[in-house]
Computed example of a mutant assay.
Amino acid sequence: MLPDFAPIHLLYLAIAIALEIAANVLMKCSEGFRRKLPAVTAILCALAAFTALSYAIKGIQLSVAYGIWGGVGLIATAIFGITLFGERLRPTGWLGLFLIMAGVVLLKFS
């Protein structure tokens, strides 16, 4: 189980996840960094995400925080890709997302 930590660290982790997702969606919207506003905003969101993650790991173990940040961010980004941009996943892609979710859950209980 996770050791005790202050709820503020979970808030920082949630903010880091949201900013990472925003950065990824904006990167797609920037069309290969040809559109300047989404490109610059994506970079700023990525920097802010790492900043929030750095605050989160002050109270959450690095391996757990980074695993959750990366896993949840990846799954949410995939969902946004499907819903906003009409991207499709093959069955192996869905299996991969399921395995990532399982890994994040296992990390939580390690």
Results as ranks from 00 to 15, higher is better:
1 M>F: 12
2 L>S: 11
3 P>H: 11
4 D>G: 14
4 D>K: 13
5 F>A: 10
5 F>Y: 07
5 F>I: 05
7 P>N: 00
7 P>R: 01
8 I>L: 08
9 H>P: 06
10 L>P: 14
10 L>N: 15
11 L>I: 12
11 L>K: 06
12 Y>C: 11
14 A>I: 11
15 I>C: 03
15 I>H: 03
16 A>E: 11
19 L>T: 04
19 L>G: 00
20 E>D: 02
20 E>A: 00
21 I>K: 01
21 I>V: 10
21 I>S: 00
22 A>N: 01
22 A>F: 03
23 A>P: 12
23 A>I: 10
24 N>Q: 12
25 V>R: 01
25 V>Y: 06
27 M>Y: 03
28 K>P: 04
30 S>H: 15
31 E>K: 14
33 F>P: 12
35 R>I: 15
36 K>D: 15
36 K>C: 15
37 L>T: 13
37 L>Y: 13
41 T>K: 10
42 A>Y: 10
42 A>S: 13
43 I>F: 14
43 I>E: 04
44 L>C: 07
44 L>N: 06
45 C>I: 04
45 C>P: 03
46 A>Y: 15
47 L>A: 12
47 L>W: 14
48 A>S: 07
49 A>H: 04
51 T>G: 06
51 T>M: 08
51 T>N: 04
51 T>D: 05
52 A>G: 09
54 S>L: 02
57 I>E: 09
57 I>Q: 07
58 K>Q: 05
60 I>G: 13
60 I>D: 09
60 I>A: 06
60 I>T: 06
60 I>E: 08
62 L>K: 13
64 V>M: 14
64 V>F: 15
65 A>I: 00
65 A>L: 03
65 A>F: 04
66 Y>A: 00
67 G>S: 07
67 G>D: 04
68 I>D: 15
69 W>M: 07
71 G>M: 06
72 V>N: 04
74 L>E: 06
76 A>D: 05
78 A>R: 00
78 A>C: 01
80 F>Q: 00
81 G>S: 02
83 T>N: 01
83 T>L: 00
84 L>R: 08
86 G>T: 06
86 G>V: 05
86 G>C: 03
87 E>F: 01
89 L>H: 06
89 L>F: 11
89 L>M: 01
89 L>T: 04
90 R>T: 09
91 P>Q: 00
91 P>C: 02
93 G>L: 13
94 W>G: 09
94 W>L: 11
94 W>T: 08
95 L>T: 14
95 L>C: 08
95 L>W: 13
95 L>S: 12
97 L>N: 15
98 F>G: 13
98 F>Q: 08
99 L>G: 13
100 I>G: 07
100 I>L: 10
101 M>R: 05
102 A>G: 06
104 V>L: 10
105 V>N: 02
106 L>N: 12
107 L>T: 02
107 L>A: 01
107 L>V: 02
107 L>W: 02
108 K>C: 15
109 F>D: 06
